[in-house]
Design a protein around this nucleic acid. Structure first.
Length: 530
RNA sequence: GGGCCCGUAGCGCAGUCUGGCUAGCGCACCGGCCUUUUAAGCCGGGUGUCGUGGGUUCGAAUCCCACCGGGCCCGCCA
């Protein structure tokens, strides 16, 4: 059984409505590593639905947390100084670097959230700032303040240096300087927490002493207490989280105890997961080593990212490389699709597992028929040869038997893939895979073509204009022309590539030439031969 | 100091929870074919001390213990 289904089975067995929580701190661009969180939560929701259990997936933006570091690209040049001023501010209160977004949070969060539907993700979105400001957290905050002593004892079990006697689990928002990370709560009474803005290790305080109304969001619970409080507030029964929280004595450990003892809440079923790296490097919002959901959708089908996440166990580290290895990755996905549709063979013991991974990779329901489409590898060449001419592309794919009596849907899927491939070639493909037809034939290129090669080009041009070659026949024909010209086939091919691409290699010549406009090819070959 | 993950073919991995066919898959590679350059074709081939050592067992990649190597997380701050 797939791990997603094991979790949903365990949850369903407990009974009642299941709430699967996910979420992150909006500390910069939200990248595909963060997608783990929501994708897992949503997949469990889906699995629960399949077994008839009630479930809801949520995504919680920690947008009321303080900015501890200025993230990329705001840490560059003039912006850096401007944003350094906002260290310690709750993200939600930091301005956007561009006027088309409401604020810092909107700027970083929107591209992520807006992309979720394209990945088939259906989650309810919550905002930490909204939760605090609306007073929804007030009751639980009061409980936490009342029982600060017990909470302190729980936390101290895991700390080297115990928290001070008068410690309170509350981070007030300094009314004077606007920071939420610099004020220390001193005591509380009624709805008010008295504080002093003393600063912390990354930003200094303003020294202000004031009072924060915790029913109005003038501060927030400290993380280790906030998390279990949130479980209680939203009735969270399951939550995937990064390995940083999963450490013994980490926030899940203390959260578990606080949830049970203070908030009378069963802690959620944990799903710790590993990070996703980018070309072997850890992704980092603050350093700009990221790959975002919109970036993904530019060059790949959404199913592929789901596949990346669900193909292996959550505790397995995953690496994503949008370069050459991406083609293999695509092939693997296509293969499991074929296995699912019984078009490819796999070990009997594997078919069920592979099929389930395929299902989980889908953004919606699985189609009954497997769509016909080119491999991504092929698409990456074809799109360059036809330069956006759909009809030509379809014809070539028919000739190549990639498409056999294609339906509208087949063509749609294939075109989509061609567009993605063309973006991929542009953005991520290694240079040697990229080619483009020369608009003009520069003299410098022409001069690299020998007398004998010219003779050959001229004859090929003549033959093409007088006859419609099938790709393979043309390919063969080039060999015979090379023979007549008294040169090696390789030299003949090189001349063709030079004339069209300005370099000595390219896609398989017969298919390549037949994929191009005939008149253009004839004209160009003649031009090179003269 | 504490914890987690990983170690299986040249590379990337599945299989480990729940011990049981002859340890699989993709790519690469090798051989052959397509008169056929090429990262777009086809067929065939497994190239392996399952990190090491010990234990449990009729039986271990799988469970237990120790160790080695790699990566990561936490350690007042997600």
């Amino acid at each position: 059984m797939h791990w997603i289904d094991k979790v949903s089975e365990a949850l369903a067995k407990k009974g009642g409505k299941q709430v699967i929580a996910s979420g992150i701190s909006i500390s910069g661009h939200v990248h595909i590593g963060h997608a783990n969180d929501v994708f897992i939560a949503d997949a469990i929701r889906r699995s629960l639905a399949e077994r008839g259990a009630e479930g809801e997936a949520i995504w919680y933006a920690d947008d009321y947390d303080p900015m501890r570091r200025v993230p990329w690209p705001l840490n560059k040049d003039a912006l850096a100084e401007y944003y350094t001023h906002y260290l310690g501010f709750p993200y939600i209160n930091i301005p956007s670097p561009d006027p088309s977004h409401k604020n810092f949070v909107d700027y970083f969060q929107r591209p992520f959230v807006d992309s979720l539907p394209a990945f088939g993700i259906n989650v309810k979105i919550h905002s930490g700032a909204e939760v605090y400001r609306s007073g929804k957290m007030a009751g639980l905050t009061r409980t936490a303040l009342e029982r600060a002593g017990e909470i302190r004892k729980i936390l101290n079990k895991f700390r080297k240096e115990p928290l001070p006697e008068e410690w309170l689990p509350y981070d007030p928002l300094c009314e004077k300087c606007g920071r939420i990370a610099t004020a220390v709560a001193i005591y509380w009474d009624g709805n008010m927490v008295k504080y002093k803005c003393v600063g912390n290790d990354y930003v200094s305080g303003c020294g202000h002493e004031g009072e924060a109304d915790f029913t109005k969001g003038q501060g927030k619970l400290t993380w280790r207490v906030e998390w279990p409080a949130r479980w209680k507030l939203l009735g969270v029964t399951c939550e995937p989280f990064g390995k940083d929280h999963a450490v013994l004595g980490g926030s899940y450990d203390t959260g578990k105890l606080i949830a049970k003892k203070i908030f009378k809440k069963d802690p959620p079923h944990p799903i710790p997961y590993e990070w996703v790296s980018l070309k072997g490097e850890a992704m980092s919002s603050s350093h700009g080593i990221i790959f975002t959901l919109p970036q993904w959708l530019e060059v790949a089908e959404p199913e592929l990212l789901r596949f990346l996440i669900f193909r292996s166990k959550p505790t397995k580290a995953k690496d994503f490389d949008p370069g050459m290895p991406f083609l293999d990755f695509y092939d693997e996905y296509d293969l499991i699709e074929e296995v699912y549709h019984r078009k490819a063979k796999a070990a009997k013991s594997k078919v069920a597992q592979i099929s389930r991974i395929y299902e989980l990779s889908q953004t919606g329901n699985v189609g009954k028929k497997m769509p016909q489409k080119p491999s991504f590898r092929f698409a990456a060449v074809l799109c360059q040869a036809v330069k956006g001419d759909e009809e030509k592309a379809v014809n070539i794919m028919k000739k190549r038997k990639v498409l056999a009596r294609p339906t509208k849907a087949d063509i749609e899927v294939s075109m989509k893939r061609l567009i993605l491939a063309s973006e991929w070639v542009e953005l991520h493909a290694p240079a040697n895979l990229r080619f483009s037809i020369l608009d003009r034939l520069p003299g410098e290129v022409k001069s690299r073509i020998s007398e004998k090669q010219r003779w050959g080009l001229k004859h090929i041009a003549m033959d093409i204009s007088s006859k419609d070659f099938a790709a393979i026949d043309l390919h063969n024909h080039i060999y015979s022309v090379a023979g007549k010209a008294g040169i090696k086939p390789g030299e003949m091919f090189q001349a063709i590539y030079l004339a069209l691409l300005g370099r000595t290699s390219g896609p398989r010549a017969g298919t390549f030439l037949t994929a191009l406009d005939k008149d253009f090819v004839v004209k160009r070959l003649n031009e090179a031969a003269d």
